[in-house]
Amino acid sequence: MHLDHSHDGPSAVSADAHRPDGSRRALRIGLGGPVGSGKTATVAALCRALRDELSLAVVTNDIYTREDAEFLLREAVLPPERITAVETGACPHTAIRDDISANLEAVEDLEDEVGPLDLILVESGGDNLTATFSKGLVDAQIFVIDVAGGDDIPRKGGPGVTTADLLVVNKTDLAPYVGSDLARMAADAKAQRAELPVVFQSLRSEPGVRDVADWVRAQLAAWTA
């Protein structure tokens, strides 16, 4: 799945696994999903869980503000030089799939300026159920939905739900209040995704982001193996 060739030129072009100096670049994991599903909160929780064991950085793709980047800065989950915001011109899915050049620049600049890095999280702007990351930009992707967005989303499927390397069903603590059937969501997700993993999480209670953080650690172990 990884393009493991190197270019002779002065800088990497796209998904090259090595940096111009020959060192292995950071693992890049994308987080996508609908508006308000908890992508930024998950990124913040991952930073807190992983920052003491890994060198990491975050790229946010805000649709029309720097709110997501500023949330992460305000929460002080990482030093400010490790968080970069990309402007997406009213089309968040374009910037992560069809024209990834601005995001590639952001990840490469982070490696140049605060590297060496083990992991870069690329958070998409809130979008629709068809938004997926290009393989030229990320090595693996997480799709974040929440129980309050309707428990029929796993059944409806779509590229994000069906093909993401990890599906996160967030805000499980809200399920009783919005009438969402978690067992049904789990069965529908299983039907859509076969063997691909699904995590149900609530960031408001223990164990919080633990399962997702463990999945990220496993991805990183595979990347550096």
């Binding site: 002779d8 030129g9 002065p10 800088s11 072009v13 796209s14 050049s101 601005a102 590639l104 620049e105």
Partner: peptide, 25 residues
């Protein structure tokens, strides 16, 4: 310059050339 850098990346991947590599350097 941002757009120039982005175009450089896309062009180098699309039409690999020594001149583009030199420009990127």
């Amino acid at each position: 310059r941002k757009l120039g850098r982005q175009l450089m990346r896309a062009a180098r991947a699309t039409w690999p050339s020594a001149e583009l590599d030199d420009l990127a350097r």
